[in-house]
Design a protein around this nucleic acid. Sequence first.
DNA 1: ATAGGTCAAGCGAGG
DNA 2: CCTCGCTTGACCTAT
Length: 308
Amino acid sequence: MNLGYACINMKLSYPKKYGLDQHRITMNRSMIRRTFDEKGLDYTSELVMKNVADLHSIIQWNEDNGIKFFRMSSETFPWASEYYQDWTKFPNIRFIHAMLSDCGQLATQYGHRLTAHPGPFNVLVSPNEDVVQNTITDLTIHADIMDFMGLSRTPYNKLNIHCNGVYGDKESALDRFCKNFERLPMSVQSRLTVENDDKATMYSVKELYDGIYKRIGIPIVFDYHHHRFCTGGLSEQEALELAISTWPDDIVPVVHYSESRSKEQLDEKIRPQAHSDLIKQLPNTYGHNVDIMVEAKHKELAIEGFIK
DNA sequence: ATAGGTCAAGCGAGG
DNA sequence: CCTCGCTTGACCTAT
């Protein structure tokens, strides 16, 4: 069982704040549209080179600190949708490829599991063709980066998304998910997973199982915290085990765990779905071997105390 | 150097 | 109709 954290390393991102005498390390350097238009691809490439170099540092930091599970940021290549069609034309692409390849080799050598979680704008269930097209683009970019790293084309290195829409008709929305799945490149299809939602009106594990897994066979990521708000009539154990059953035998399933911010901060005004800074405990895995992605605002600091 | 306003994309919930 | 939150705050300008 591995514990992981997502996208940001607090100590490395804010070294001063945590009393470290070193420069900032982050894979989240980005820019607004206007800057992208003004400064162009050369400047973009500079940010990307720093981001991928820092990914290497983060992997090494993770190894040094006993962490073997990490979700990569989706912001490593700012505005990638504007240039992903032909990576070979991107400035310094040889350096970037080499660095990503090194990152992948390092992770593989250390036995680290690297995953990604493309954002809420990825809506495979959308009735709007433009939205679906943008989704295909964003997922393809994520998969390309994983390919550059030499990561497996399996859900071991998962690309995880939510359905992200209902439109008053789940049945047809789920239909569209399965139909649009066929339009994705193999680099995406082979890694894609889907996660249960934190709203009762959206998708429970059971609904994802019936509507997606049964038809296209992609694994379900079980989120403990979300399940509390959308049980689909299943207990935690039932939902967990149903999700686990969708994973290939030779790949350890991933689950997400977080705790309520309103409880942690003793503030009832905070919406119950919000994530806490830290966690008090680990989830009950009911004896199953899973990798646990801990979604806490303070990132790696939340799991430090649980790493053996 | 820091603070405050601003910032690609989609959706649903809450005010 | 507007804002928030989500995966994840980070960027940019004025002071």
